[in-house]
Design a protein around this nucleic acid. Structure first.
Lengths: 306, 306
DNA sequence: ACCATACGATCAGAATATCTGATCGCTCTT
DNA sequence: AAGAGCGATCAGATATTCTGATCGTATGGT
């Protein structure tokens, strides 16, 4: 008799193409996974993976079966989600992914508020860049993600939460030198500091500046905004900084923030989830909670112009 | 962690609304089933069934979850079927339903032929009337059914196999008395013997005779064609007999068969299965096999006219 | 050619999960 | 008030699944 356990293990194996890694992801030892895979093969009477020294290949039949298994596992997840709805909103566990340019600035407040208002909720956080987050979301390893919109995959649905304007961060001493009138031209003349490849923030900044700053690409990617801000403070360049990050990252003595006078470049921060998920009400509740946080926050900490 | 076992048990329970029966159907004892249901409820955090003395009720959440479970189980079945295709046609086990007016006459040959040509196939037979067969087919308890076409449910697909003409069976002594010219009128004057409610044969005969024989409904239903033929032989009435059954059921000394001169009433015998099943090639192979049997059989045993 | 390494298979024993059969307690019927 | 039917519960048996150690093989570097 086929079991869900077998399907779970096999789906992971088909994805990783590696017994050891798959076993890790399933949180069991490699022999345990091997045995279940073998049992599934015996059960179905089909060779699912070809074991060749060093590496393995998923057979064509295996591919198809992995796809079906994935669909089945998805439906089981939705069944559980549906059930969870019946014990009230935002209860049980919710796996939330957040991108690095949001997590540190919003997460503490989110956690405080969630603990206060939804003590039943066990919020599990994963912080990484947008594309792995979306993959994991689609695979069902995450329930929702907090990212910059839009999100492309059609099986996802998103709720915009707030607008996050970009400011220009420059070394304080240099600030008086910046006139608001020709910001864009001026940017083109500076060295633009950006995060490393893969961060959506980098892409957004590049997109905005592509006309203005053709030499931006030579800027090597930094691993964190903190690094970048230290470099700005030391006068090694400028950067585009989301308002959200400003309060935390900016040392007012050493760095000045310049707002765009009109039509500021901005990102939309939103919550995304699988369209097929049965936890819609959880997500809208969580979205509302974050929205409300942000409104208060914006109210108290006004954007700092020069 | 939700298991397929839990879903299987619960789906059965939701259908039977009875722990004991569900346990029987699942081939386990009642405590085993109770425990799995309880575990599923704990897992999902939802009460799935209301236990009230004597009887139980499936909660609304339970209904929805049972429906989802059913869908999931169906997909798992299809996954298995898909896999089975890969080890060649007509291997493994195949659960075939057959109606009583076909089974005794076709099954022996089918079994002989299947054993010869597909020794790998484990054919499990269920014999009952059309409507329970179709229900079980849709639920996935059967893989295919051999019935009179058409079959209505849209999720089923059917393959016509052969035409089975109806003959009139009368007591031998009375036979000379029948002129072919006005068969229909004549039928109206006789007592028509039919199977009990639920047999498609009864409905087909009634449909054909509805103009001719308005008093047919008073004929009490017999449980088997054998009973009916004994009564015909004893001169208690006449019946419409499918050609398929004639060789086996007719004692030529006591019963005569009269063929309709033109446009004989007939039934189409066919094989039906779930459209969603992944075993199409099994079914067409089985259909071909039955077709070929029938062609030979028709060739050797010509319909016996007066 | 030889060693080191990485990978998956295998095995024995331990830990879990699941099942059975007996029994209990409740509710409805008579 | 007694009996029948039903599901829950419990203890012990059984089957499944897991772990940790070990093995054999293929591969790549030297």
């Amino acid at each position: 008799m086929v079991t869900l356990r077998q399907l779970r293990y096999f789906e992971t194996l088909a994805r990783t193409k590696h017994f050891g890694m798959a076993a890790d992801q399933c949180a069991v030892t490699q022999p345990a996974l091997s045995m279940q895979i073998k049992e599934l093969e015996r059960e179905l009477g089909v060779e699912l993976v070809e074991r060749r020294g060093g590496t393995i290949a998923v057979t064509p039949a295996g591919q198809e079966i992995a796809a079906r298994a994935e669909a089945i596992l998805g439906q089981v997840r939705e069944l559980s989600d549906y059930a969870r709805q019946h014990q009230g909103v935002l209860t049980g566990s919710l796996r939330l992914g957040i991108i690095p340019s949001i997590a540190p600035y919003l997460l503490p407040e989110i956690l405080t508020e969630v603990t206060k208002r939804y003590p039943q909720l066990d919020l599990q956080i994963r912080e990484t860049q947008t594309s792995p987050l979306l993959e994991e979301l689609i695979r069902g390893e995450l329930d929702a993600v907090l990212v910059a919109l839009p999100v492309e995959p059609p099986q996802l649905e998103a709720m915009p939460l707030f607008e996050d304007r970009f400011l220009i961060a420059v070394q304080s001493q240099a600030a008086p030198d910046w006139s608001k009138s020709d910001l864009r031209t001026r940017i083109g003349q500076e060295r633009l500091l950006l995060l490393e490849e893969g961060h959506c923030l980098r892409d957004q900044a590049l997109q905005f500046c592509q006309i203005a700053n053709m030499q931006a690409r030579r800027a090597l990617g930094a691993a964190s905004l903190t690094t970048i801000m230290q470099m700005v403070a030391a006068g090694h360049g400028i950067t585009l900084l989301p308002e959200l990050c400003a309060r935390t990252e900016v040392d007012r003595k050493r760095v000045a923030l310049i707002a765009f006078p009109e039509e500021p470049p901005r990102r939309i921060v939103g919550l995304a989830w699988r369209r097929s998920s049965a936890r819609q009400s959880d997500f809208t509740a969580l979205g509302q909670l974050i929205k409300s946080l942000r409104r208060e926050a914006v109210g108290e900490g006004q954007p700092a112009n020069v």
